[in-house]
Amino acid sequence: MTVTMGKALNAALRDAMREDDSVLMFGEDVGALGGVFRVTDGLTAEFGDDRCFDTPLAEAGIVGLAVGMAMNGFRPVVEMQFDAFAYPAFEQIASHVAKMRNRTRGAIGLPMVIRVPYAGGIGGVEHHSDSSEAYYAHTPGLKVVTPATVADAYSLLREAIADPDPVVFMEAKKLYWAKDEVTLPVTTEPFGTAVVRREGSDATLVAYGPAVPVALEAAEAAAADGRSLEVVDLRTLVPFDDATVAASVRRTGRCVVVAEATGFAGVSAEIAARVQERCFHSLWAPVLRVTGWDVPFPPPVLEKYQLPGVDRILDTVDRLQWDDVPDPRFLAGSR
């Protein structure tokens, strides 16, 4: 049947709550309203206000409450309404959620999920389009997951809720309405497994979350020009699947990392570094990146210039030293 990513996430929550009484859903507007993106639609009606409930409007309090409840037998799933509105909770996440198991030598684990709608592409006004994954991925103790397909949305969220460790579950807002033919429930590859979404032989595009459909579109366009691009969907940023990424790049000999977030010190930089460390002797060109510019996320009118698009990806692929000509952009003296 045709399912949107939003409905798949909703189904994952519902099925998890049906199977396990300890699973709770709470946050801002997740009750009667069903969440501003309707991901929690109908959960309060089915499970009652004890299982899916609204809280005061305070993100540190929401995450802190979840920590305490996870310490005492529950498996909370909390919703941060938007990426940038999760920042008040960052101290709770970095100092407690991520560290509790380690600081107590394993005595207290925190099986909890922090759902974060993130990234742009929906014309959101200021503070509604941040790609904040690097903050979490840079914090040991968290798992960071971001589905790009409808089936993954369901399966990865179920796995996140079942996981003994805290998971930051990043949901690309522009993909909430993405549709696919999926029969639920569905189980896809587990955490720590990247998936080759499209096979190719000339270069590898490594992408995650909102960048995956763009990378696939670029690969389709490149095929028309006779260039065969492989697309790897990371799915989970932590744990990271070095093996799949490296195997692909060793096979193709060229790599472009595509990410919507700003590039400097971002997850894309980490990926490029890991590929370079592992695949140096297989590479015909430096690893290049297509990312958002290093600017605060722009207003809706300018959004199209910020988001990595097909043309920018193809232009970057063109600079992968196909005729042994160095990339002019990074030659000595070029800037």
Binding site: G64, M69, G73, F74, E91
Partner: peptide, 13 residues
């Protein structure tokens, strides 16, 4: 920062 944890743990109890 531990105060919300106390609330969560007590509420869970």
């Amino acid at each position: 920062t531990h105060a919300p944890h106390a609330v969560g743990l007590a509420y869970a109890a």
